[in-house]
Design a protein around this nucleic acid. Structure first.
Lengths: 338, 338
DNA sequence: CAGGTCGGTGCAAGCGCTTGCACGATGCCG
DNA sequence: CGGCATCGTGCAAGCGCTTGCACCGACCTG
């Protein structure tokens, strides 16, 4: 296994102590006398000793690793979450095992099963499998859901109601009367949650479920063009950009022919043509909160908080009033993410 | 650790055989007789047995995991590479340990060191640390570099010369006479490689080194506006989009005031305003090739091929001839990645 | 039909580390 | 000044798995 030559025993010899002493210096330093501790540390540095994770785990200690599952790492939304989780890991000397489930439910659980036993806990983004299944797979290992609330599971999610309300209110305020909300895949908690909100709001047209990707957005554009919808709240930014692209390809214009509101505020939203009005998600916070939650559970916390993060509306040029309002278009607004 | 209750020994009891037999069924099935094998498999399924990775590794077998290091996972270019590597992992029942080095050289090696001994091999994207250091850190573990060629290390990289030539030739053909090439960080192999190519090409202005991100692109725009440059080849798409944004923010227009060519052809390139002309990198192939290479090394191959992948020019609307040429703008061209 | 082969399985020795326990050496108390 | 906490360290038993080796019976060959 690589250069893994130097073991704890080597360090022990070098420092002239028993292996167990070295082990203790590493795990519970306060148990060891000052002089010995120093000597051991010196030996560790001299030999460039790196503990063998497998052995450590096998002996019953912590693994020092967490598993992160995402439906699609190329989706910037998840990439950001992953990144801030990873930063948390680095700060705490943990390793991150990442699996991309490719949005397939079966893979989600099988990946988790493969990882269980190799990690101390899980952060799972937008899980689709049933909560029961998850609890069964992870057993007693701490589990944090991102972007899905579930009974008995710690989670950090976006305020889905606010997403719908901010988007719709903005469109209404701009004078739109025929407003569509695009539903996401029913397997997503966020999608189901939004459906619930939409149902309570009068006068909305719904489309979908439509996959939250660019291609699906393009396809959806065709349907939208055939309708009398003038304002649409997409399921996320990537899909929204697809709608825009679909319109552009058909010679139509956003926002002239259709006002589009996205959701997430990924970097592309500010760079697209036109810049996308969107309900901004605090991605960095999402990841940070998820890691914190997991870290706390790992440390022995027993509550399972269900954190809801607020969202904000970022108005750009993809929405336009039916009457005459002018639109904002500034790269300065981009500052709010990251 | 989690629900990890059922061990190989349990399976052995259930199947009425010796633990070692179960082990062999899993690792070298052909050694075991058909009837026994079936019985063991039945027991495995019945008990929902999942091998303990740590124990397996400790016992000297394969770890069944590879380490992947990227400078920035939120960069779509790397996200795609990671994703196709991950797909390779899934197909081969491997686990992927991912670390985001945040573009810091120190973190690169320390992450690698932490991972060494927990993985069978490494895929390292755009490494900045010296080859010597890398070889030392990974020891005898297989190592594959992505986007950097190095003596004695298997690698898969893009044809940097073609990137420069395609970009510059395109700009020249459009009638530009004052063309700038933006240099990337000197720590990048790709950047140094491009510098070498640029040096051989007459009449080019260089800028930078400039960080390959959006903000740096915006900042660079200011410099560009003060010059008489009319065409620029950015270090990558994200930076290019930054340049475009910088121009827009200053009330200037791309491509009217400046033709911009990016590099990578990330999804955003097709969605931006204006859609970005760019030298397209075969990201999927990059990841696939990297995984294949590593898999082959893992399987015992001894050659260390240095694969160079070809790039192609995707013309969109961010470049314009100084005379009168018309520009392309079609979402159809997006089809070439993924 | 005996001796040799060989496929199939059991056996046991670890891999590197953690940790409960035992034990020697201090230092304190009465 | 002796006995007893107390602190610091050594000891050894595994954690769950792989693997070289030994072994046994069935098969093949002459």
């Amino acid at each position: 296994m690589s250069s893994q030559a130097v073991t704890l025993a080597d360090v022990a010899v070098e420092a002239g102590v028993h292996p167990s002493t070295v082990s203790r210096v590493l795990s519970r330093p306060q148990l060891i006398g000052e002089p010995t501790r120093t000597a051991v540390h010196a030996a560790i540095h001299k030999l460039v000793y790196t503990p063998n994770r497998a052995a450590r785990q096998l002996a019953g200690g912590r693994v020092g690793a967490i598993g992160v599952l995402v439906p699609d790492i190329t989706n910037p939304f998840f990439a950001h979450v992953v990144r801030s989780v990873q930063q948390g890991c680095r700060r705490n000397g943990l390793t991150m095992l990442l699996a991309d489930t490719d949005q397939r439910e079966a893979d989600e659980l099988s990946e988790a099963r493969a990882l269980a036993g190799s990690v101390d806990g899980f952060v799972v983004c937008s899980p689709v499998a049933a909560t029961q299944q998850w609890l069964q797979v992870v057993g007693t290992a701490p589990l944090v859901f991102v972007n899905r609330r579930a009974n008995g599971v710690a989670s950090v999610a976006l305020d889905q109601q606010a997403i719908i309300e901010l988007g719709v209110t903005h469109l209404r305020a701009a004078g739109h009367r025929s407003i569509a909300v695009v539903r996401g895949p029913h397997s997503y908690w966020s999608s189901r949650e939004r459906d619930r909100v939409v149902r309570r709001l009068p006068g909305l047209v719904t489309y979908g479920p439509v996959r939250p990707d660019f291609e699906a957005g393009i396809a959806l554009a065709t349907d939208l063009m055939r309708s009398n919808v003038t304002g649409v709240l997409a399921f996320n930014d990537v899909q929204a950009l697809g709608i825009v692209a679909g319109y552009r390809a058909a010679g139509r214009s956003v926002p002239r022919d259709l006002s589009v509101v996205g959701s997430d505020d990924i970097a592309d939203a500010a760079m697209s043509d036109p810049p996308l009005t969107t309900v901004a998600a605090p991605v960095q916070q999402l990841g940070d909160a998820a890691f914190d939650l997991l870290a706390r559970l790992l440390a022995g916390a027993i509550e399972r908080p269900e954190i809801t993060l607020p969202v904000t509306l970022t108005v750009r040029a993809s929405t336009l009033g039916r009457s005459s309002t002018s639109s904002t278009n500034s790269i300065a607004t981009k500052g709010n993410h990251r």
